[in-house]
């Protein structure tokens, strides 16, 4: 009987440690599980072609250590950033980002952009992120790299520019479509969430201001100010990109 119980315990422990996520989740989702929000225990995000479960670290004794646990950095250049990097740009928190990941990212209408340089990105990133460094997005609007980025975001270059009528209406203030500039049609452009290292990081604010200079509609740009520092402070899942 004792041997039978021992075998049964082995099987059960193996199942616990190596089981499919759904089975392990059912066991976890009870007392003591730390969800993302009251109605969202975790979410799944596609990152580099594979599914990643974004959840909180479940160890209540876990404490953040390392670089992102630091409280101060040299300023300048790593100074606390204002709540919004430019007028009209909405700043979001983690809860809004979860919704974005589940909705806009999943249906292709949104992009999550890690605006840090590649060396930062390679250390670890938020699942679902693509790396477009701020140095590209703060180039001049006519720069080929900026043009390539805008096209990647779904903007369409206007070959002929605005017509006489459109210009007239705009000059008179009778038409103000934020999706149309002289050079670009942003009607089908995606909603972007940009982030970097956290409230002391200026990389994504620079990228945002660069996009605004190129005419990107501010209603389609969101700023996740918390960045990697807050993401890690809340014990949320990060991934190291494929080399």
């Amino acid at each position: 009987m004792t041997r039978y119980m021992g075998h049964l315990a082995k099987v059960m422990l193996s199942v616990l440690a190596f089981s499919t996520p759904s089975f392990a989740d059912e066991l976890k989702l009870g007392q003591g599980y730390f969800p993302l929000t009251t109605d969202k225990p975790y979410i799944h995000v596609i990152h580099e072609g594979r599914s990643v479960k974004v959840q909180r670290v479940q160890d209540p004794d876990y404490q953040l250590r390392g670089y992102f646990a630091k409280t101060v950095r040299k300023c300048p250049p790593f100074c606390l950033q204002p709540m919004s990097p430019a007028p009209g740009i909405q700043t979001i928190g983690e809860v809004e980002l979860f919704d974005f990941l589940e909705r806009d990212l999943r249906d292709g209408s949104g992009l999550l952009i890690d605006a840090r340089t590649p060396s930062w990105f390679s250390k670890g990133t938020i699942p679902g992120s693509i790396n477009i460094p701020f140095s590209r997005l703060s180039k001049a609007p006519e720069d080929p790299e900026m043009i390539e980025a805008l096209e990647r975001f779904g903007a369409v270059e206007r070959a002929e520019g605005p017509g006489f009528g459109e210009k007239l209406l705009r000059d008179w203030g009778l038409e103000d479509d934020p999706n149309l500039t002289d050079d670009w049609d942003f009607t089908e452009a995606r909603k972007l969430v940009l982030w970097c290292n956290g409230p002391e990081c200026g990389q994504s604010p620079r990228a945002i201001r660069g996009l605004l200079s190129a005419g990107y509609p501010r209603e389609k740009i969101l700023y996740y100010r918390g960045g990697m520092q807050m993401w890690q402070l809340w014990g949320l899942t990060t991934v190291v990109p494929e080399q």
Binding site: H44, R50, S51, V52, K53, V54, G124, Q232, G235, T237
Partner: peptide
């Protein structure tokens, strides 16, 4: 280099 959580 750091990851938090598990790829599932």
């Amino acid at each position: 280099e750091q990851t938090l959580g598990e790829a599932d």
